[in-house]
Design a protein around this nucleic acid. Sequence first.
RNA 1: GGAGAGGUGGCAGAGUGGUCUAUCGUACCUGACUCGAAAUCAGGCGUGCCCGCAAGGGUACCGUGGGUUCGAAUCCCACCCUCUCCGCCA
Length: 423
Amino acid sequence: MLDPRLLRESPDTVRAAIAKKHLDLDLDAVLAIDTAWRTQLAEVEQLRSKQKAANNEMVALRKGSPEFLAKVQEMKAVSAEVKAREEGLKGLEEKWQQAMLTLPNIPHATVPAGRTPEDNQICATQGDVAAVSALAVPHWEIPGFERLFDFARGAKVTGAGFPFYVGDGARLVRALVQFFLHEGVAAGYTEVNPPILVNAASATAVGQLPDKEGMMYETTPDHLYAVPTAETPLTNFFRDEIVDEASLPVCRCAYTPCFRREAGSYGKDVRGLNRLHQFDKVELLKWVHPSQSYAELEKLRLDAERLLQKLELPYHVLLMCGGDMGFAQAKKDDLEVWAAGPKRWLEVSSCSNFEAFQARRAQIRFRNTATGKPELVHTLNGSGLAVPRVLAALLENNLQADGRVKIPAALVPYFGKEYLSFQ
RNA sequence: GGAGAGGUGGCAGAGUGGUCUAUCGUACCUGACUCGAAAUCAGGCGUGCCCGCAAGGGUACCGUGGGUUCGAAUCCCACCCUCUCCGCCA
């Protein structure tokens, strides 16, 4: 959520943000709702003030005296009016809330203009894409693939997009998760193992509810939600709290399975391990002092990049343009790994600075020791990394002539051997 | 799952219909005393929202949401959470 004061004092800033993100929304309507709400609020508060004053007078009167009874009669009318107007105020407040939630975060000045993925800026490319492409095929076409990644049985047991990982497949998933967590801890993130079901309040605080995209699985009868990312429980860790300024930045990493319904995305890149309903991911998350958030974003992205470097996978970094960066982010860098089989780039990490946008909605603050007042923290997060797409890239880029897959040196201690076998 | 107890500010803990603008304590901040500190004394000390250039004013918040009433921390209803005991369970 945006700062309502920004909307009132500098509506043109908000207008420019809406344009840069290529959103279609009527800011004047939002401004009108804001004015109406504030007017109504002032009226109700004035009436309540009247009630309070009368109450103090009545305390001094003898109960049951004519003056007292007259006052009761008088206040009955005021009470009825307060009740009626409060109803209207409540309606306006809900409209105000909803209107405010439609306003996107303001993109940072360094975010390039643009509408589509083609307008994203390629900042850096690491590794030799041509070198790995020679004998590569899409990973789902590698002989023996379905022995290690059993989609058919997953579909029988659960549904499409819920594969079984078997033998070296399962072993590689475990190795990657372990590797990512160890590297995260080494980079200064505290490891957390969070709940993977969250309540509606948590899902709402990070903007996943109301469920516009059909993203989450909901459980019955308790109405808990399977997390689409560890960001959900992790960000909520400090919800409605005031953290110590001296403790910032707080850096944490967490492994969770992630559950996504992906309603409406059928037919788009669904082959193999590219898009699953359940997958494993290690998430990196930071709560930082507002003055440090862009420096911390750089560090966060470098922490994620280092993982790809150690895995010797070619990748590039994209600075997302205004139209492609998402609603809540102020700045977003994507890491895409080279998939040698289909010869395309796969997103394996999105490193984002939300500034105070998430923190305002989740009410995560720190006490500014200089002013003594609470202020919103800035929140950042990024994958470090998503397992299946990294796994797919490893299979395709490292496939040997004998049908085995060479495990990168950094991963061998976790995997326990130098080659993965489809036998 | 069953029975009982409870949820009040950073912590602790009073308040059972009307000066509650929430007592007292503690922690914390400032000042006095002191060479300095401790102890002691004096003062200050929650969060959100609205109005205001500001000083300041107003209003809300006692687990959450409803209700009763001229008036609710206090009474009624529903829900959530915590603790104790019993049952079940890896």
